[in-house]
Design a protein around this nucleic acid. Structure first.
Lengths: 193, 193
DNA sequence: GGGTGCATGTAATGGGTTACATGATTCT
DNA sequence: AGAATCATGTAACCCATTACATGCACCC
């Protein structure tokens, strides 16, 4: 039995993804980017060894698939044990960790920054999250059409809504902060003269 | 020269903190929790070796301090080079990494969760962030009084405002999602009967 | 005598990304 | 001819937390 100190988020993410359909490591990587990419990421260095561990524990099953003119593919699917393990994990309260933000770290020391740096950084996040809001909205519309009727749809939409709320909050914050910064920088300039 | 692949956030966080006043590793740890704890964390395992590296590079200076009835203290202060290094780093655009959220991961697979689990998880974040909003507000009020006149105050307030905006967004999102979840769970129950 | 706070540090461990190695096929 | 996509995997690193080891002083 392998110890998993952190609750095995990665392992369970793999199990979760395999509920969608049987997949290879390669498939999983591609899918994560399109589906849960805005709040989760997995790299090959995690996925391939992870799948092997899960197989050893009997939580997933490997089947080798041959397709015409394609490399061989190792397709994994959930076992009954795997499904149960996932369910048990979903029941546990998610561990919350304080996200590290380099932006805020820099802003906290903003008084020592070269002129204009703070403004530039915040403008960048405002632009990024303004785009973010639009992206979330179009994704929500698309999902509602494409996956209509799927019992999982409401949950997927909630994660998108989360992203939209967060991005919108950051846009609002950025605009407020930019106003204040502009006043500050003006004061600094006039004080210098 | 030591390679620092990630831009040396930790090293620069240490430099930044030492602009506030000369401090020991122990002081730094204590201060981080109270000041930048809501978006950054440093552990002893990072701080002590980090300070040594910075000393070797000539970016900080160590002075040993003896106090009556206290253990010996290694107090570090910024050098001119350290100040410059910090300034250069502040100028660079902050690297943004997608924060991993175990909550969203679980919610994405919420259809497979045991009854009530999703509601429980979201209620917990709602409560936590509702508290968060209040904490940020009182911290803002306190800072404005205690640090009135400090040229760094506006920057510190902006980081608090960030936290408040984000927490408020999460509360709003949580309440929306809880409404939807309650409808969903009711449907599931009546479908079972 | 025992808990708490001050103070410094290392070792073990865990979790994760990036770069590399390999090689076929398909599209331009 | 060369780029892109499909596909699997490992090794080297980096970053970070946790637990541990040590010890004094102060208060209850």
């Amino acid at each position: 039995m392998k110890r998993r100190e952190n609750g095995g988020s990665t392992a369970n993410a793999l199990l979760g993804l395999l509920t969608l359909k049987p997949m290879s490591g390669y498939d999983i990587r591609a899918l994560t980017e399109r589906s849960i990419g805005h709040f989760w990421s997995e790299s090959y260095g995690q996925i391939y060894p992870g799948l092997r561990l899960l197989e050893k524990e009997g939580l997933v099953e490997k089947m080798t698939k041959q397709s015409a003119g394609r490399p061989e593919k190792n397709v994994f699917s959930l076992t009954r044990d795997g499904r149960e393990r996932l369910k048990a994990w979903l029941d546990l309260p998610p561990v919350h960790e304080v996200p590290r933000s380099e932006l805020l770290l820099k802003l906290f020391f903003g008084h020592h920054a070269p002129e204009g740096a703070n403004l530039r950084h915040i403008e960048a996040v405002r632009d990024a999250h303004q785009q973010g809001v639009e992206i979330y909205k179009t994704m929500e519309r698309r999902l509602k059409l494409e996956e209509a009727g799927d019992p999982q749809l409401p949950y997927w939409l909630m994660t998108l809504s989360f992203g939209r709320h967060r991005s919108q909050a950051l846009v609002d914050w950025a605009n407020e902060s930019l106003d204040q910064l502009r006043v500050l920088e003006k004061k600094k300039k006039s004080a210098k003269k």
